[in-house]
Computed example of a mutant assay.
Amino acid sequence: MIQWPDSVPIYLHRDLVDFRKAINGLAVMVSEEMALDVYHQALFVFCNKTRTQLKVLYWDSTGFVLWQKRLEKDRFKWPKKDPLAVVSISIEQWRWLLRGVDIAKLTPHQSLTFTEVA
């Protein structure tokens, strides 16, 4: 599997997509539906209507790259209930999604910051 840097932003297109779309069609969706800069160093992730395939579009500074994964037996646990058209996830959530974990049901511990020791 391709390894992306831990700092790369990852955006899910929440609605399911017709996978006849290739680079140009997905790039237009990023720009128009997601209202994001398709030339930004980020991963833009799409899921097909049967939730058996993912496509990842990204700009590598020389051209667009389209990565695809197809499941043979199962379905991806795609977030449904978020009202936003774009869902931002962490690299850890991305790895969970690829492994079949329902990221919408996981709640990590709250991050805390302190300025003094009590």
Rank of each mutant, 00 (worst) to 15 (best):
V38L: 00
W67I: 07
H109E: 06
L26A: 06
E33R: 13
A22I: 00
M34R: 07
W94R: 04
L54Q: 06
S31P: 02
V65M: 11
L66E: 09
Q53L: 01
S31D: 14
F19A: 04
E92W: 02
S88Y: 08
V28N: 06
R95T: 10
S88Q: 15
L97Q: 07
D102H: 01
W96R: 10
L97W: 04
V17L: 01
L98D: 06
S61W: 04
T107S: 14
K81E: 00
T50K: 14
N24I: 02
A104Q: 02
D37R: 09
F76Q: 03
Y11H: 15
V86A: 02
F46G: 06
D6I: 06
R95F: 01
H109W: 04
F64V: 05
F64R: 12
D74A: 14
I91K: 13
V38E: 01
L43T: 12
V17R: 01
Q93F: 01
L71C: 06
E72R: 06
D6G: 12
R75K: 14
R14F: 03
R20E: 09
S88R: 14
W59K: 12
S88D: 10
D82A: 00
L16T: 15
D74W: 05
K105Q: 08
T50D: 15
A42D: 03
P5V: 04
L26R: 10
D18I: 08
T107Y: 03
P5L: 12
W96G: 05
G63P: 12
D18V: 11
I103R: 06
I23W: 02
D15K: 13
L12M: 12
I89K: 08
W78I: 03
P79H: 00
Q68L: 10
I91F: 09
Q68S: 15
E32Q: 11
E32V: 08
W4G: 01
I89G: 07
V117I: 10
K105E: 05
V117K: 13
K69L: 04
M34T: 14
L43R: 10
I89F: 07
M29C: 12
F64L: 10
K55A: 02
F64Y: 14
I23Q: 13
I103M: 08
D6Y: 05
